[in-house]
């Protein structure tokens, strides 16, 4: 009987040929989660549109069309006509093409700003959490100051400091807003990791300090930060839109960007509300997509869900 038991146990261990890491289990859970799927589909669509925008858009962003312009009057902006499914914007450009092309800008600004913020935040958080002491205190006081300022106000101040408004200043401004959030979050979970048994175990084993930090502490601490990044991406898109809306973004009028389009459309809200509503809806949809994904990612990574 004992042999049977041993055999059974061996079979069970051999069953799982590769062994499943926590990450792959989290991904498996994620794939089954309808919320994650909804978020994923929205983001997927958005990324696809952005990637193929130049092919999808029938016209250029700054191209004006006489047949649209001729109907432009105060109090009238032409709606959908043949060849222009969404009609004209306030300057006689193809609204559909601008909506499609704008996705690129939004993705660029949102993702780039979040990634930069994430990178800087991870460095600061890791250093603070791993070293502790006065380094930690100093870094955390600085992030506290940044956190004390409302995020949009901070972004506005940063963007306003730049010599001339541009795409780059928007990205940097939005990135800076994210830095203290990521840094604080990571530092907190790094500190928790520092006292955890498996980190003590690695130290006791004689593993070198940088390896302990990078191999054991960081990978286990970064989960919440990744979740936060997806959520921040949503706000980054909104912040970037807000900056453009306030005229702190790239002033090039030909450039298509949802926030900017929303800003410029406000004067024509009573004439053609779609000019404002569609960009606004797009921004909200994308932000929602990332939020949904972030929330379900949080759930999938939740240690309570683990066996």
């Amino acid at each position: 009987m004992t042999t049977t038991w041993a055999q059974r146990r061996k079979d069970r261990i051999d069953d799982l040929a590769g062994g499943r890491s926590l990450t792959s289990e989290a991904l498996r859970r994620l794939r089954r989660d309808p919320v994650a799927l909804t978020g994923g589909v929205i983001i997927g669509l958005f990324v696809l549109v952005a990637a193929f925008a130049p092919l999808l858009a029938p016209h250029g962003p700054a191209e004006t069309f006489p047949q649209l312009q001729q109907d432009l009057r105060p109090g009238n902006i032409p709606g959908p006509t043949a060849g222009f499914p969404l009609g004209s914007d306030q300057l006689g450009r193809d609204f559909l093409s601008r909506m499609i092309l704008a996705s690129q800008q939004t993705l660029l600004v949102g993702v780039l700003a979040t990634l930069i913020g994430l990178a800087v935040g991870i460095v600061i958080g890791t250093v603070a959490g791993a070293f502790g002491g006065w380094v930690d205190t100093l870094l955390m006081r600085i992030t506290d100051v940044l956190l004390a300022i409302p995020s949009l106000l901070l972004a506005i101040s940063v963007a306003a400091l730049a010599a001339s408004p541009s795409q780059t200043t928007v990205i940097i401004a939005v990135a800076i807003v994210g830095v203290p959030i990521f840094a604080r979050l990571l530092r907190g979970s790094m500190l928790a990791q520092r006292n955890s048994d498996h980190v003590v175990a690695a130290t006791a084993l004689g593993v070198k300090r940088p390896a302990v930090v990078l191999r054991h502490m960081l990978p286990n601490a970064i989960g919440p930060v990744i979740v936060q990044a997806t959520l921040t991406l949503a706000t980054a898109i909104l912040d970037a839109a807000a900056l453009s809306f306030l005229g702190l973004g790239d002033a090039d009028p030909g450039r298509a960007e949802w926030g900017l389009m929303l800003a410029q459309a406000q004067t024509y809200l009573d004439v053609r509300p779609a000019l404002a509503f569609l960009p606004a809806f797009a921004i909200i949809a994308v932000a929602l997509g990332f939020t949904l994904l972030g929330e379900s990612l949080r759930e999938a990574l939740d240690p309570k869900g683990r066996r």
């Binding site: 062994g19 890491s21 955890s196 175990a201 084993l205 593993v207 054991h216 286990n220 683990r306």
Partner: peptide, 16 residues
């Protein structure tokens, strides 16, 4: 808690 949940047994053992 004393085993890093993200490391396979092999990498836990090789590390030392």
């Amino acid at each position: 808690s004393s085993l890093d949940p993200r490391q396979s047994v092999q990498s836990l053992l090789t590390e030392g």
